[in-house]
Amino acid sequence: MATALAVAMATTISPASAAAGGAPAATRLARPAGVSVCLGLWAAYNAILLRHLGDGCSPAGTYHIHVWGGGRDMNYPTYTYNRSNLREFSYTWPVPAGTNICAELWYHKPGGGYESWGLPCETM
């Protein structure tokens, strides 16, 4: 898994490439280590991998993911989810082993406000 995760850290996987089977091995794993509702999270080797699950898991629309742990706290840029393909993102997250990392998937409601669609946590 270390090699697959390291490969995935350098890219953001687009829905088209994930569906085509050309994605790194980490993308093809069945389930992330931590899953809550529609968001999966891997945390290993000073990096995180976030997966907004496909197959109509949550409403189509605009989302962002908030991640925190180990003295770090970030809201990642918004993106569009269309319900048919998963979305996957990878980032460097340099914290000590044993650090608890959490991420929350936020749906931007069309009438305003936000709605949570997952809050997994994982130990680095």
Rank of each mutant, 00 (worst) to 15 (best):
L86S: 15
V7P: 03
E115A: 14
S36A: 09
A103N: 00
L49Y: 15
V7N: 13
A23M: 06
Y107R: 00
E115C: 09
R31C: 03
F89W: 09
F89E: 09
F89R: 12
Y91V: 11
K109H: 12
A16P: 05
G21H: 06
C38Y: 00
L29K: 04
R87Y: 12
Y107W: 04
P24E: 07
A19D: 05
T99R: 02
I65M: 01
E122M: 13
A6S: 10
A97I: 13
T11F: 14
H52P: 02
L119Q: 14
G71Y: 06
I13F: 05
I101D: 00
L119A: 14
S36H: 04
R28L: 13
L86H: 08
T11W: 14
T92D: 10
T78M: 11
G113T: 00
A18H: 11
R51H: 04
R72N: 05
H108S: 07
L53R: 08
T11E: 15
S36Q: 03
V7S: 06
G70E: 01
P96A: 15
T92M: 11
A43V: 04
A4E: 10
D73L: 00
T12D: 06
G113C: 00
C38E: 01
T62L: 07
G71S: 09
Y91G: 05
N100M: 15
W93Y: 04
G98A: 05
E104K: 09
K109I: 15
P59L: 11
Y79T: 03
A19T: 13
C57F: 02
S36V: 07
P77K: 01
Y107F: 05
M74D: 10
A26M: 14
L105Q: 12
A6L: 07
T3S: 12
Y91A: 11
N100L: 15
N46C: 07
M74P: 02
K109N: 15
S14C: 07
A44V: 10
W68F: 13
S116H: 11
R83P: 07
L86W: 09
H64G: 01
R28G: 03
H66M: 08
R72L: 14
R31S: 14
A25Q: 12
R83C: 01
L5Y: 14
A4P: 13
A33F: 04
A26T: 12
P15F: 06
W42L: 04
T123S: 13
T80V: 08
A4K: 08
G113P: 01
M74I: 10
A6P: 01
P24G: 13
R31I: 08
K109Y: 09
R51C: 04
G112K: 05
L53E: 02
C57N: 02
E115T: 14
R28H: 06
P110K: 08
H66R: 07
C57E: 01
T62P: 00
E88R: 02
T123F: 10
V37N: 11
R51A: 09
T62D: 04
S84F: 11
P32Y: 11
R83A: 06
H64M: 03
A25N: 09
R83H: 09
